[in-house]
């Protein structure tokens, strides 16, 4: 049985002389919550763009949802969901219009879309917002809706790039409960975050530094390995060994 939904072997991505991804090798399993961490500029975004079929690797093998990232990027796009903090929904369309649009893009039947709209609005307690423009929604609601839309077509994997940036602490936690629920359904969640407490919620995390994956394990094992109390300490030890965490000022 092969339950690897992402399989990366010796992935290299160069931009001119600059090596953004330097020989990455890792697997992500079905239904796993995989935290993809790293300092700004470590190469996370490049890797996510390759995994989601938006960018071709320079060399190496990348298989996502059973398809090759270089040759079969269109099939990959059909089998994944994607959301990021900056852009996710069309602000000048209503909630319903956004769901309909994305459903259409993913090739869902009109009747299926209609059902999904109904389910989603019920689940998120969103009824009253159905005909509201996205721009008029509070950020927290917007992000929850964006996530729901990203998994509308029940993809094998959903990529979340800093989904909770700037979101209030309650919504942030509700968002993570949605992530848990999604993973429990067998959808793999591939997530980046700058909130180190959120890294602890992941099944496994990888930490990138200067284009390389320098650590990859469960949060528990990484803390043991680096003799650290929290993932934040692990992160700091890896990224810059001579710095104290935020709270030990």
């Amino acid at each position: 049985m092969d339950n690897k939904v992402i399989k990366v072997r010796n992935l290299v991505k160069r931009f001119g002389k600059f090596v953004a991804n330097d020989n990455l090798t890792f697997d992500v399993h079905e239904g796993e919550i995989f935290g993809f961490l790293g300092a700004n500029g470590a190469g996370k975004t490049t890797a996510i763009r390759i995994l989601s079929g938006l960018l071709e690797p320079t060399s190496g093998e990348v298989i996502v949802a059973g398809f090759n990232a270089g040759r079969e990027s269109e099939q990959i796009k059909k089998n994944i969901g994607y959301m990021c903090q900056k852009f996710s929904l069309y602000e000048d369309l209503t909630v319903k219009e956004n769901i309909t649009l994305y459903g259409g893009i993913y090739g869902l039947k009109t009747s299926v879309i209609r059902n999904r709209i109904h389910e989603l609005l019920e689940k998120l307690h969103f009824r009253e917002y159905e005909n509201r423009l996205i721009s008029a929604l509070p950020l927290g609601l917007r992000q929850k809706l964006a996530f729901s839309v990203a998994v509308l077509h029940e993809p094998k994997i959903v990529f979340l790039d800093e989904p909770t940036g700037g979101v209030d602490p309650i919504t942030r936690r509700q968002f993570w409960e949605m992530i848990y629920e999604t993973a429990a359904k067998g959808i793999t969640v591939f997530v980046t975050t700058h909130y180190m407490d959120e890294a602890e919620y992941c099944d496994r995390i990888s930490i990138m530094s200067e284009g390389k994956i320098v650590a990859l394990d469960t949060p528990e094992n990484l803390k043991k390995q680096f003799n650290a109390g929290t993932v934040e300490e692990v992160f700091i030890k890896i990224a810059r060994p001579n710095i104290s965490p935020i709270h030990n000022s």
Partner: peptide, 8 residues
Amino acid sequence: GVDAVSRS
């Protein structure tokens, strides 16, 4: 949007 190390 800044990583934990740079924030510190």
